[in-house]
Each structure stands twice: as structure tokens, then as C-alpha cells.
Design a protein around this nucleic acid. Structure first.
Lengths: 350, 350
DNA sequence: CACGTCGATGTAATCGATTCCACGGCGTGG
DNA sequence: CCACGCCGTGGAATCGATTACATCGACGTG
């Protein structure tokens, strides 16, 4: 592959001049510029990003470590992150942690070794020593979706508190009183927050949340199935199940079907994270939708701000309830319910 | 960040010795080795992958350019590719082309600039000049899923011919005679192959495939909706619709529902590419499943073979029909139909 | 005892870019 | 007319590693 030296030789100038042309430095004669450009064209020359990075100490690359690529929520997040980064001239390298702390560490380490300019993380688990080092160690970093408490890193996330309250109101309105939740890992912020929001909302309605109605899942479909089976084995099974992510909702649906029960007639089901497929399940699933695209963009913005020396901002965007049919047929809606996804442009910053 | 020089100073040896320890070169004294290792530990030193790549001319990185990350089929492919690559000590950088040739070129160029060791591509469209250059230009390359005819690059893919024949037999057995297909872009191999396989299978049953029953889609949900609406507007709409990928099937389902029609009572639906969600749609969708994980692994194997100087092999794996309920209730099965996913271990190489 | 061999180590070249600095030529103002 | 400054340019240092080659001491052998 042609190097800058070959171009210099071909154009009859020094490598310094070639470099200047390539980085359009002002002081190059028009004549030299055209000769260099011609040589570049003739040789099909492309600058070696590796060499350039070594010299300039920047790779124009962002790392994104997410908990599970197969989860449509994260896929969409990854996509919007890449899009936003590309618009700013950055590439993105995605690391899939598969909800495994060891894999997460592997990817963080690999990305750091590659000297990425900044790191976007949705931590799978509590803080690993490596992650703490990275956070302190100068690598620009931003948490997205999930975060690690006590670490001084900006966070870009959605707040589901209000939406969870709306959901509980919705369930209550439909007559459901025994509500249960399939929680995510307590070590993740999203895992514990959603339970807390649910508990708080139930309290507002004077409803109990017995321990038997809190199932411990791990954000994967299989755990949703397992937990739901436990719920159904209860002497008095819950009337409604709220899954803390979309995959566990899927597992729950499996378990319910396997018993020959029907949603919502026999049991209601709702999920955190809305995804395109929820429209097509039987029945369509009521869910809490995060403004995923906006989250990705905000995260990139914050990270690039840090990288380029501007003060980064934590951002919290509201999630919202999308009512479908999995909790029961809403009686003739008294007020215009938020049935159709109106884009959530609302945004709060902290 | 600490460099090899710092380590050398700390350990009281030269950089050469440090490098030798790090790459466990035999001729290093036990004493030097322990001192270096201690220094590495003390400084938290990690070798700079950028510098290493520049010198060794290898990045231990594979590029993967896929047509659409949001398509669960490709997400799964990407995941299995990353897994297989990691097992062999390679990282993967994913580029999402979003079915746009310009974006595809952008990613190929970026990856090439980064001097990745090899490139896995599922080409969105016909051959761009850039792609041809890359294929000829020495960068090890393997096509996966889709390929570009006439380019001398190994191909790893699934053959759906037999499965499509099974599908047509299934539909025929259920009494469907007017069959239609939502095709993918003719410029992609998967787009045209699936239509041809379908046409051939219909011919075996003496069934026609009028032009009006071939809708032109683009592998995105929206096109599936549009094409299906066209089918339904026909004076004599088809009795069964076969979507050439999972997203278009989703769009088709939308369109059918929007007319107040029901699957499979009013119209049958089947799809190429099986995905977890198809179990949960209303009704569960009959689909042709590719051995995605195996494809990813085979692709990485082939690419790494090329990179490391072994002769790479093209691989073709069979797809298989997974019958669910979207084409109609199968009458009491005369012969044991392939209803339960038995892992396809069968593999043919060329 | 001298010499060849081998193992451990250091010096320095190298990868492909960027960039500081020096230099020559030319225009301009005093 | 001289000096100063600026512009365009090239030489060379530099980034952080790897590795060919040189060196040096110890040891074995004839």
C-alpha cells in the first residue's frame, strides 16, 4: 500500500508538503497542491490512520460498551450513537458485554489499548477496578442508560419514574390490584431504579408489593420465563406482571402461554423498553418507551464535549407510557390517552 | 499514560528487554523478567496497540460491514462473528450500511484506513469501485450472507433452495394456490436468489408466478407494507405471501391487519429468516431459518484462514423450514413434519 | 589456553504519519 | 540599497512499539 513517501516521490516534493496538503495547511503553493493531489489520485493513496493516530495521539474513535447487542433497545441505542458520532467525524467500536462483567472488562481493556478518544458505557454490573481506573485515569467517559453510583462521570439516561406511575395508574384503572415485577439485576441502576419506581407508585395507590411479587431476573428472556413460572405457582398469582425490560417480557409471555393462560384475560403484562416488535405480539404489549435515539445523540454530544475540552452535561430524558392491549381493554377512554407515539421532544438537563 | 520507556526505566533495563518480556521471547533472564513484570504492574502499563500495529503491520482486527444492524438476523450474525473472532484473538469493528451503498463505502473506506487485517462484507448493493479495489487490492476479504458475483472472494452463506421448496409444499398442502412474494432488491444476491428459488418451486407444482405477484421490496418493513397493500388491492389477491426477509414480513403483517384481515384465515404469511420474535407474533410466523451462528463462525474461520496464509474455503450451509401457524393449521401431519427446530449440523463445503 | 558458541542485553533502525525549525528567495519599507 | 519579514519548502525529530544487529561475558572443548 502506497505511503506518504511514495506520494512525495511521485509529486516531486517532500513528505512534509504532502502532509500539509492533506491537512490543508495554508502555506502550500497552488502548484505543489495540484501536483500532490494528482499523485494521491494516481497512487490511490489513503493516509494510514494507525500512523496518524500514533503521532497525533488521537484516533477519532469512540468506544461503546453495551450490555447486550441482541436486546433491541441496545441495538437501537448503538445505531443512534454511531450515527451521531459519524456526523461529528468519529467512528464507533462496539463492545458487547452480554451482561457478563468479565466480558465487559475485556472490551473496556481492548478499547483502552486501542487508545480510543472516549468511552461510552452502559455498565453491566457494579464497578470493576478496571472501570474505576478508566474513569479516573483520564479517558473521557460517559455513562449511558445505566451508571455506577459514586463515580464522577456524566450520565445520559431516561427517567422512567413518571411513566411507571402512569403504568400503575393504568393497571389500577383496569381493576388490577395484585401487581408483580420481574426485576433486573440489583447491581445495575436500571435494575434497582425500576423496582423502586414501581414500589413507590404502588404505595401511592395503597397497594402492597410483597417480596413474593418481586422476581429476580437478569434482563434475559429465560429469566423472565423462570420468574413468571414462580409467580404462576403462587397460591394467589399476581393479576399483572411488569417486566423490567423487553426480553424478560418475552420470557414472561412464553411462560404464560405454556400454562395455557391468556394475556390480558388471565393475566396482564407490561414491559420497560418499547420496541417495534411489541406492536406485533399477541396481544400487542403495553410498554414504557425510552427516547432511545435522543439518548444516543445526547450521549455522543456529552462525550465529544469532554473530549474536546468543553464541559460535558449529564442529561435525563423522560420515558413515556405507550398503552396497548396487554393489560386489558381500556374502557372507552375518558380522556385522550397517549395511545399514539407522539415523539417525545421534551428534554430536561441537569 | 505510561510507555514502554517508562517501564524500561523503572525496571532498569532497555526497551528491547521490556518488549521481549511482553512478547515472551525466550532469551530473557528470569531476573530481568520479574523486574519488568513488577514495573509493568507498578505503572499499570498497557502496550499501545496503535504503535504496535504500526510496527508489525497488523491490527488483529476484523471489519464487518452489514446491511442493517436493526435487522435481528444481522444482529445475531454480528454477535456470532464477534464471538468467533474473539476466540481467535481478534477484535471486530462493525459498520452498519443501513442498506445504503454510500454508507457501505464509507465504512469500507474507514476500515481500510484503519488497516484492519481482514474484511467481512454482506454487500448492500452491486459492486462499488471501492469494493472491487479492496477485493483485488490485497485486503483479505470474505463475503457473508450476500455476495457480489464475479468477484474472486470466498463466500459463506446459507442455501435456502430446499427450504423454499419445503415451504411451497407446505403452502400447497394447505390448499393455497395463488402465491406471491415480496422480493428484496434485485441487486443483492439474496434478493434475487430467493425469488428464483420461489419461482422454481412453484414451477414444480405447476403454479404460475405472475408479475403482479412479485412485489419489489428493499428488505425494510415499510416496503413490506407497501407491497402487501398492492397485493391486497389486486382484483384477485394472493392467498399466501412470502416475504424475503423478516422485516418485510412485519410490514406485511401491518398491512394485513390494517385492512382488518386475519392471518392465516384470510391470507397466509411466511418469511425468510427466522428470529426469536416470530414465536410471539399473532399468529406465530412460519419462517425459513438460517444457521446464523454457524455462518458467523464459518465466515471468521475462512477470513482468518486467508489472513494467516491458509487457503480459505467457501461454505454453504442449508437453511430449513420452521412451520408455525401463519400459513394455516396443518391438518394432522401425514408425515413427521419438521416442526421442531432440530439443530442443523449438516454442512456442505465447496 | 585460546577460540568458538550461546545466551542475555543494549543500540539503533524502522513503521507512516505530523510538525518544529531552518533556510532561501522575494517583496517592501525605511 | 539594505534589512526585515513572510512564504513555501525540506530536513529531521517524534510518537511507541518491534527487531536486526552488535556486544559482552561465560562456558565448553580441542
Amino acid at each position: 500500500m502506497a505511503s506518504i513517501k511514495d506520494v512525495a516521490a511521485e509529486a516531486g516534493v517532500s513528505v512534509a508538503t504532502v502532509s500539509r496538503v492533506l491537512n490543508d495547511h495554508p502555506s502550500v503553493s497552488e502548484d505543489a497542491r495540484t501536483r500532490v493531489l494528482a499523485a494521491v489520485e494516481a497512487l490511490g493513496y489513503r493516509p494510514n490512520a494507525v500512523a496518524r493516530s500514533l503521532r497525533t495521539d488521537q484516533t477519532r474513535t469512540l468506544g461503546l460498551v453495551i450490555s447486550d447487542v441482541m436486546n433491541p433497545y441496545f441495538t437501537e441505542l448503538a445505531r443512534s450513537v454511531e450515527e451521531a458520532a459519524r456526523a461529528l467525524g468519529y467512528s464507533v467500536i462496539i463492545g458487547n458485554a452480554d451482561e457478563r462483567p468479565d466480558l465487559q472488562d475485556h472490551h473496556v481493556r481492548t478499547l483502552l489499548d486501542r487508545r480510543i478518544d472516549g468511552l461510552l458505557v452502559s455498565p453491566t454490573d457494579g464497578a470493576s477496578p478496571l472501570m474505576l481506573d478508566a474513569a479516573r485515569g483520564g479517558t473521557p467517559m460517559v455513562f449511558v442508560d445505566r451508571w455506577i453510583p459514586g463515580v464522577d462521570v456524566p450520565v445520559v439516561r431516561a427517567d422512567g419514574q413518571a411513566a411507571v406511575r402512569d403504568l400503575v395508574a393504568h393497571l389500577y384503572g383496569l381493576g388490577h390490584r395484585r401487581l408483580a415485577i420481574i426485576a433486573g439485576p440489583a447491581a445495575t441502576t436500571t435494575g434497582s431504579e425500576r423496582v423502586e419506581a414501581f414500589r413507590a407508585a404502588l404505595a401511592e395507590y395503597g397497594l402492597p408489593l410483597p417480596d413474593a411479587h418481586i422476581g429476580q431476573g437478569d434482563f434475559q428472556a429465560e429469566s423472565g420465563r423462570r420468574v413468571t413460572e414462580g409467580f404462576l405457582d403462587l397460591p394467589e398469582p399476581p393479576e399483572a406482571v411488569f417486566a423490567a425490560d423487553n426480553l424478560m417480557a418475552l420470557g414472561a409471555l412464553d411462560a404464560i402461554r405454556a400454562r395455557g393462560l391468556r394475556v390480558p384475560d388471565d393475566i396482564a403484562l407490561a414491559a420497560f423498553d418499547d420496541i417495534p416488535w411489541f406492536v406485533h405480539t399477541d396481544p400487542p404489549i403495553t410498554a414504557i418507551a425510552q427516547p432511545t435515539g435522543e439518548l444516543g445523540r445526547a450521549a455522543v454530544r456529552a462525550l465529544v464535549d469532554r473530549i474536546e475540552g468543553r464541559p460535558p452535561q449529564s442529561v435525563t430524558l423522560p420515558a413515556r407510557l405507550v398503552v396497548r392491549r396487554s393489560c386489558g381493554e381500556s374502557a372507552p377512554p375518558e380522556q385522550p390517552a397517549a395511545s399514539e407515539p407522539s415523539p417525545a421532544t421534551n428534554r430536561s438537563q441537569s
